[in-house]
Amino acid sequence: MAKIIQLIRKYWNIILFLMLEIFCIRLIIRSNSIQGVDMLNSSNAVAGFFYEKQNQVASYFQMGSVNKALVAENTRLKQELDGLKYFDTLQDVTSNVPLVVYDTIKVKTDSAALAAATDSAQSKPTIVQDIRPFGKPRIVKYASYKYIAAKVINNSVTNDRNNYITINKGSSDGIQKDMAVVTANGVVGRVAQVSKHYAVIISVLSSRPISSQVAGGNIGVSNWGGDAPDFVTMSQVDVRAAVRKGDTAYTTGYSYFPENIPVGIVTAVDTYKVNNTLNLKLKLSNNFRNLQYVYVVANQLGTEKQILEKAVSDKEKEAQQNAKKP
């Protein structure tokens, strides 16, 4: 016994070193799991306070570019709004609820829907999925989304695996975990951790893929390879898709993002011979080096969708387990 204690005392430093390293490695492994960051992160009050103070000083130097971006966004929104008004008067529907349209033609042609419609009230509105009156205006269905503006107080692009952004709004402003985060230009990321006044976003520059579409609905998966913070790779695109350089890739509504938010512009197309799909190199439409303001998107129907999908996958798992048992 005395010998063991002697041994421990002799190698005490190495034992301490190994213990600390094992603890660190455990922390790293846990923070790289699907659940994302936990415990200590920059959404806590101390880090948030310092970042906010630092940002108050630094943001003075970026006033000009922020103003320019806001004016450009305002112009774009005005134009979009005018387009909607024009469209609504053409369709002869009330213009203050532009996306809820009484889709009478569909009810008439679809016999099954007609039978259902006779049961329920005739005037039940259906949400129009695809509105393209002229050109290709891309409109988020804002019926089910709510936008919360927030200021970026810390941002990183240099990490090779996961990059995080800290914003100055938290649960007291209605932000919850897993909400999507966008700017006027395009996608930013997903809320990973929330405290009372701050939230940490795991940005697109991470190992989390985004479901995206290009060239009229060809679906693929965009993933950040880990090198330059300006590019992502979109893989698993159908080889027959007519994709050209300069096309824009948008999000699909399948994941946590709203539909038709720009992801990036195609800069290179190459065919992946192994499974005959296209690999597209996308230049991200956001400049992640100087993000200033972001919008957190609260999906009001999101939880319903998630619960439904989770129920299905749980049932699937149960069925698989039952199949294995006997």
Binding site: L40, N41, A47, Y51, Y164, T166
Partner: peptide, 18 residues
């Protein structure tokens, strides 16, 4: 660990620093 907390890289800096 302090730097990790600020940079959201849980454990990375701590491991390198130890």
């Amino acid at each position: 660990l302090t730097v990790d907390m600020f940079m959201n890289t849980m454990g990375l800096h701590a491991a390198a620093c130890v």
